[in-house]
């Protein structure tokens, strides 16, 4: 097992290095955005003095390198900084302090994770099961129908799928609410009910990839001698696929699942907008609009971390799915 531990630690180290590089890219990219917060907030009254004063207050007049390390240091100590927009608002009203980025992001991120988890709970089992069945009944009507349905749902724009679901599940048959305006302290059941429609929309979007990879990875193995052996031992087709092919097909399937889960965490702005779901995607877009740089940077970093973490997990899991590594000679 020492072998496996080394691999895991190695991957973790690589993950951290990647994250560091990504943080630099994010910082530089965000600072390349045209316009700045001071000019935007002052509007018509943007005299050079006023702009300079605000920039000084926010620390925007320091060099890029100084600001990067200040930001990085803050990140490492858990201080994501203070939102420009909220800070200004608070000071103008005479209140002290201001809202930190962490306070602003935390509830939104929790909501996003909730939506992603609900979607994953629905989508992953469906996709893998459909993939297995499609491989079992390959080239039959069932296989073709599954392929056509999943592919058309992934090919349509997300908002379109969202409105179709709203039409059928909340307008024509009022089963589910079309607005997902969840808030703190909402009961779990109600929260789940409100999240179901966006989760179903996202399920339709992510199922195709995972299902097709499951199908392809299994079919790819069906010509192997050990599959032939299992068939020649008189095992049923279902057993051949689930017991003999699937364990060897896990690596590619895990990777595609991870990729889709990462998408659920980082790329669901459109669905959030359609259902008015208070997730991190909308916060991110709003912050870009008003150049609220600390929030934008923190969101980017969270997205990057989610991506890296999920891919890292996939990497480790698919490595572990190889019996040669789990049981060295």
């Amino acid at each position: 097992m020492g072998n496996v531990l080394t691999i895991v630690l190695q991957r973790l180290a690589f993950g951290l290095i990647t994250l560091l590089i990504v943080s630099m890219v994010i910082f530089i990219a965000v600072n390349l955005l045209p316009g700045d917060f001071a000019e935007l907030i002052l509007g018509q009254g943007a005299t050079p003095e006023a702009v300079a004063s605000i920039r000084h207050d926010l620390g925007l007049d320091q060099s890029l390198v100084t600001r990067y390390f200040g930001w990085l240091g803050g990140m490492l100590t858990g201080n994501l900084g203070t939102s420009f927009a909220q800070l200004n608002f608070q000071t103008n009203l005479g209140g002290g302090g201001g809202v930190t980025v962490a306070e602003q992001i935390a509830p939104r991120f929790a909501n996003t994770m909730f939506l992603a988890s609900v979607t994953a709970m629905i989508a992953v089992p469906i996709a893998v099961t459909l993939g297995i069945l499609a491989a079992l009944y390959r080239n039959t009507v069932f296989d073709r129908a599954t392929n056509i349905l999943t592919l058309s749902s992934i090919s349509s724009p997300e908002f379109f799928m969202a409105y179709i679901l709203i039409l059928f599940l909340s307008v024509l048959n009022p089963i589910l609410p079309s607005l997902s305006n969840i808030y703190d302290g909402m009961a779990f059941g109600e929260r789940l009910e409100k999240t179901l429609l966006p989760a179903l929309t996202l399920t339709l979007v992510v199922t195709a990839h995972m299902m097709r990879m499951t199908r392809a990875a299994i079919i790819n193995l069906l010509a192997s001698p050990y599959i032939e052996m299992a068939r020649l031992k008189g095992m049923s087709p279902m057993r051949v696929i689930v017991k003999h092919a699937l364990p060897n097909a896990l690596a590619p399937i895990i990777n595609v699942i991870a990729l889709n889960l990462a998408y659920l965490v980082t790329g669901v702005v459109v669905v959030e907008v359609v259902f008015v779901y208070p997730g991190i995607g909308q916060l991110f877009v709003d912050s870009v609009k008003i150049r609220d740089i600390p929030v934008v940077q923190a969101c980017c970093l969270i997205f990057a971390a989610a991506y890296i973490l999920l891919n890292l997990t996939a990497d480790i899991l698919s490595t572990l799915s190889n019996p040669r590594l789990r049981h060295p000679k």
């Binding site: 050990y226 008189g234 095992m235 040669r324």
Partner: peptide, 24 residues
Amino acid sequence: KRGLLGKRIAYVAQSAAASFNPAH
């Protein structure tokens, strides 16, 4: 046929390394 295969008629392949499932 499945009832016969493995039970009354069995098969030994050329490459045992390839014909044993690596996962079990």
